[in-house]
Amino acid sequence: MAEPNEIKELYQQLLDAWNNRNARGFAEQFTEDGESIGFDGSQSIGMEEIFSHLNPIFEQHPTAKFVSKVKSVRFLSPDTALLRAIAGMVPPGKSDINPNVNTHHTLVAVNTDGKWRIQLFQNTPAQFHGRPELVEKMTEELRQLLK
């Protein structure tokens, strides 16, 4: 039986690739037909498209680093898992989270031939329109991870 830590490790490898600005490493966490939906709604399908989308971003822009906290891992079947996390971003040259880009991460992982890969990763803005106290609560929860 699969363990939640296997799914958390897959998610951490994805974030490590992002934080290291490694488009190939990011894309390689996905299945051949896996999907990535970015913060701005950009959708990339398949490892090569994910790589082609991210590579110029990493080459041309200093990207912020993710700080995240896994909130849950649920197995939908022995070979399918759902991970939910919250994340914030620390801009280049800064030491604090930018609350304007807090996000919810949703990851669906599948086990194929004994290897966990990402089928879907969605990065949804956590704007909480009209409820600034929720933005602050999430930001504070993530700031605890910076200490």
Rank of each mutant, 00 (worst) to 15 (best):
M47I: 14
T139N: 15
Y11K: 04
Q127V: 14
L15I: 13
G38Q: 11
S52Y: 02
L83Q: 10
L145I: 04
N55E: 15
K8L: 07
N5D: 13
E35K: 09
Q29P: 02
R21N: 12
L142V: 08
A23V: 07
I86W: 13
A27S: 15
R74M: 05
H129K: 12
A81Q: 02
N100R: 15
E32V: 14
N100L: 11
L76T: 12
D40C: 00
E28F: 05
D96C: 03
D113H: 03
P4Y: 09
Q119F: 05
L107S: 00
Q127D: 10
R74N: 14
Q13E: 11
H129E: 13
G41A: 00
N22G: 04
F51A: 08
H53L: 13
Q12M: 05
L10A: 07
N111A: 09
L76H: 11
V110P: 07
N22K: 06
F66N: 10
L146M: 11
P78I: 02
E3K: 03
F51I: 06
R24P: 04
G88Q: 13
P56L: 10
N5S: 14
E49V: 07
K137V: 10
P132T: 13
K8M: 13
S68N: 11
S42L: 08
D113W: 00
Q127E: 10
K137M: 13
I86R: 14
A17Y: 04
T63E: 11
Q12S: 13
I97W: 01
R84N: 12
E136W: 00
H105W: 05
K115M: 06
N55D: 15
F30R: 10
L134C: 02
E28D: 15
I57P: 03
R21Q: 15
S52G: 08
A64Q: 01
P78F: 01
L82C: 01
V73D: 02
E9I: 02
F51C: 07
E59V: 11
H129R: 12
R143L: 03
F39H: 07
